[in-house]
Design a binder for these strands. Sequence first.
DNA 1: TGTTGTTTAGACAATTCTGTCAAATGTAAT
DNA 2: ATTACATTTGACAGAATTGTCTAAACAACA
Lengths: 94, 94
Amino acid sequence: MKSVEFGTYIKIHREGKGIPQRIVAHALNVDTSTLSKMELGERQILITMVKPLAEILDHDFKDLQIRYISEKIKADFNEQPFLKEALQMVIDNI
Amino acid sequence: MKSVEFGTYIKIHREGKGIPQRIVAHALNVDTSTLSKMELGERQILITMVKPLAEILDHDFKDLQIRYISEKIKADFNEQPFLKEALQMVIDNI
DNA sequence: TGTTGTTTAGACAATTCTGTCAAATGTAAT
DNA sequence: ATTACATTTGACAGAATTGTCTAAACAACA
């Protein structure tokens, strides 16, 4: 999986479908200004927005959620020596 | 692994060793008031504090870091349908 | 060039979160 | 009961983050 920032990924796919920010922003109940910032990484994209994003962009929800979560985890815990063990522990407890 | 909240876990082990908050707070460069709140879950414990906590409590760092990270992930992403796959993806990319 | 629609930038108020201070409460021993 | 120390609480100011508004920058094209 290519590691492009989530906001950038959304932007690329939105543009690929020729959908203006106006439409996506409305689906997320935010301003186009906010969406612009989210795409540029200046505002957080909430996990609750992943589903509506998948729908409006007609994109696989599973893929999008995996991208979202894995990026957050890398951002928060990269470099932590026992990250792998911690993740394995969570997996084993699901 | 028993799932007791991280702050509570710290508190229990601090008390078990008979170390006052004053000492631990100093090691973390915070007030006892802040440490109290951290132990009670009213303030975030930063990941950068896990190492000094392990040292001052003479507690296994690996265990503590695993507890810290896995708790955060559960708090942030519990219930997400593809959490497992996302975690596996991060593991595979480490 | 002027028009129309899209995207971004800057300023802002509202909200949330943080650590500290001072005071209150709790605990144990004498 | 008093002392000494530990812990918690509530109020607070400072910092950080949020979404919106307005206007500027950008793009496509008649």
